[in-house]
Design a protein around this nucleic acid. Structure first.
Length: 569
RNA sequence: GCGCCCGUAGCUCAGUCGGAUAGAGCAUCAGCCUUCUAAGCUGAGGGUCGUUGGUUCGAUUCCAACCGGGCGCACCA
């Protein structure tokens, strides 16, 4: 609908320009808002005011010109009003709103999908937690956001792929091996010094216990160093498996797993750096090799190969992103924890170093999660290994609630997550509020079918009876869904959909309490009805169509967020 | 010190490519189930949109400075 009206306004502007009534060469982007107050119409535009300066005319006069030039004005609008400074308030014909319901039914699960990203490929990298321990709550938020971004981009036509970058090389892995090895020795009655920066979490000890039998079998044949290496690879496999399981329980299937080690083995790092060298973006100083990141706006140059000949983490990451670029993606999205924000200029420099615009990469920052239990903060410490795992949260509140909570706020702001609140199956919990709206409609179908009322198709049902403000309000909300998805995807902000769904659910609940869809039971008919509304079979049919459309959009919206739409609650 | 993010109702947060009387949930108070799921609905109270300036027809939104909070500034990952 917005699209249709925008087209009409554009037509008006162009028409006016042809007649010489307006001069501006490039129109500003036409934004149509649903005004706050019903008397301001269905949609409002501020074009006239934004054109005032370039046209050197009073906004009101410009609005007048636009109105006169709207093609097919009579067919589209019931009312077109110009208000004070120059607002253009449009009231769309109800018949056009009613059309929206047919469109939703026709498109079904596809309703809300658009083609703005058609033909473009995007790779979304998220979580990418080191396989040195279980996923914690912070990773959970990253996972929820990453998944939602993938689904949103898919919904606007991108070919979107998810990827997990496994840091399976380097120091952290060595520390993991050493930590497990130390615990293993402890279990075998020996005592050795625990590695300085080792992993202290209790999961390391239980990991050592799990692996003990297997290690005992080979302990005599292997040197301590080899045994430690064995610890590392076994622990790594175990932990990566756990991570996969956790993600799966969260409803997330990563399509591609990319190993850092594979970069070393394929010499990809050397090749990527070699390419930088030929572009004169690499230099040697103090016995180390540096990447000229400052050429592209980073605050300083960065070491990629240390004095001791080892590559830094950045070197792998350069090679990794080089690889992603070579795979031909039009857009790369990295979902980072906010503590890595300093890393962004570096990676943007990498994009440019390989001859791509820096916006080929988009980084989505996910701020920390402040976990609360009954309003009291649960402290987490990575160093001591005390943290709340994603598994615990999932077990406690369930995947849907966790997902919804993670996606309720702008990912770039701190999130408070109260476990008790998320667990409550009550009004306090917004997840159930939205799901309940869906389940309520499903219940309508069950009752209708029990009473022998068939579910009508939108086509062939007279929808003109849907004239009540509550009915039209619902339809207007439904009609804005595709726009919400599109804006949400382009901004990489899933929380917009979460908000939309809460608003839609609120309208549905209000409607449900105020109006009836199905006729009351026969023996109730003689009673003085609370509502004076006459519920004809025609009206029932139209409202069933409306309910079906609401259900469809709720389901589509929940689906794009990775949340289930239950039929019973 | 430098950089990034945040500061909106008692609490948690939406809104902000500049628009008309700033929104929601929670919490508080008062109501609504013999009829389609009360995990719901209706109503009330609650605000100098951190502060001060600037830009303009118009600023919560843009700019500057300041105050407060978080994070980052490794030849760690």
């Amino acid at each position: 609908m917005q699209e249709r009206v925008t087209t009409a306004l554009l037509g008006a502007l162009n028409g006016a320009r042809q007649k010489g009534q307006l001069k501006t060469a490039a129109w500003p982007t036409l934004s149509l808002d649903a005004p706050k107050r019903p008397e301001w119409g269905d949609l409002a535009s501020t074009v006239a005011m934004s054109l005032a300066s370039s046209e050197h005319k009073a906004p009101h006069d410009i609005a007048q010109i636009i109105v006169e030039n709207i093609p097919q004005r009579e067919q589209l609008f019931d009312r077109v009003e110009i208000v004070r400074p120059g607002f253009l308030n449009l009231t769309v014909k109800p018949a056009l709103w009613q059309e929206v319901l047919r469109e939703i039914e026709l498109q079904g699960a596809r309703y809300g999908r658009t083609a703005v990203g058609a033909g473009r490929r995007v790779l979304v990298e998220y979580v990418s937690a080191n396989p040195t321990g279980p996923l914690h709550v912070g990773h959970g938020r990253g996972a929820a956001v990453g998944q939602a971004v993938v689904r949103l981009l898919d919904a606007i036509g991108y070919e979107a792929v998810s990827e997990y970058y496994i840091n399976d090389a380097g120091r952290q892995m060595k520390l993991l091996g050493a930590s497990v090895y130390a615990r293993y020795q402890e279990l075998s009655g020996q005592t050795i010094a625990f590695p300085e920066d080792g992993y202290h979490g209790s999961y390391i000890t239980s990991l050592a216990q799990q692996l003990k039998e297997e290690l005992d079998r080979v302990a005599d044949e292997l040197t301590p160093a080899d045994l430690e290496t064995r610890c590392r690879s076994l622990a790594y496999q175990k932990l990566l498996g756990l991570i996969r399981d956790d993600l799966r329980s969260f409803g997330i299937e990563i399509q591609s797993w990319f190993s850092e080690t594979s970069l070393l083995e394929s010499k990809a790092i050397e090749l990527a750096l070699e390419e930088l060298k030929t572009r004169d973006l690499l230099f040697q100083e103090d016995g180390a090799w540096w990447f000229r990141a400052s050429t592209y706006g980073d605050e300083k140059d960065r070491v990629v190969k240390k004095q001791d000949g080892e590559y830094t983490y950045l070197a792998s990451d350069i090679a990794y992103h080089h690889d992603k670029l070579r795979r031909g993606y039009d857009l790369l999205v990295d979902v980072f924890g906010a503590d890595h924000h300093g890393y962004i200029p570096r990676m943007e420099a990498v994009m440019q170093a390989y001859g791509h615009p820096k916006d080929r990469l988009h980084v989505v920052l996910v701020q920390l999660v402040k976990l609360l239990r009954d309003g009291v903060e649960v402290k987490m410490s990575k160093r001591t290994g005390e943290f709340i795992t994603m598994r615990e949260v999932l077990d406690e509140v369930g995947a849907d609630a966790a997902n919804f909570y993670f996606l309720m706020r702008d990912s770039n702001t701190h999130l408070e997550f109260d476990l008790e609140l998320a667990k409550q199956r009550s009004a306090d919990n917004p997840v159930y509020y939205v799901q309940y709206a869906h389940a309520r409609i499903c219940s309508l179908w069950r009752v209708a079918s029990a009473r022998g009322i068939a579910r009508p198709a939108a086509e062939g049902t007279d929808l003109t009876v849907l004239m009540d403000p509550d009915e039209l309000g619902l339809i207007k909300k439904l009609s804005s869904y595709p726009e919400v998805v599109q804006a949400s995807a382009l901004a990489f902000e899933p929380h917009r959909v979460t908000y939309y769904l809460q608003q839609l659910a609120a309208l549905l609940h209000t409607f449900y309490n105020k109006h009836r869809v199905l006729p009351p039971e026969l023996d109730q008919e003689n009673k003085e009805s609370a509502s004076t509304e006459v519920l004809t079979s025609k009206r029932t049919a139209a409202r069933l169509v409306l309910m079906g459309a609401v259900q469809q959009v709720l389901r589509n919206g929940l689906n794009v967020l990775g949340i289930s739409a239950p039929e019973h609650m």
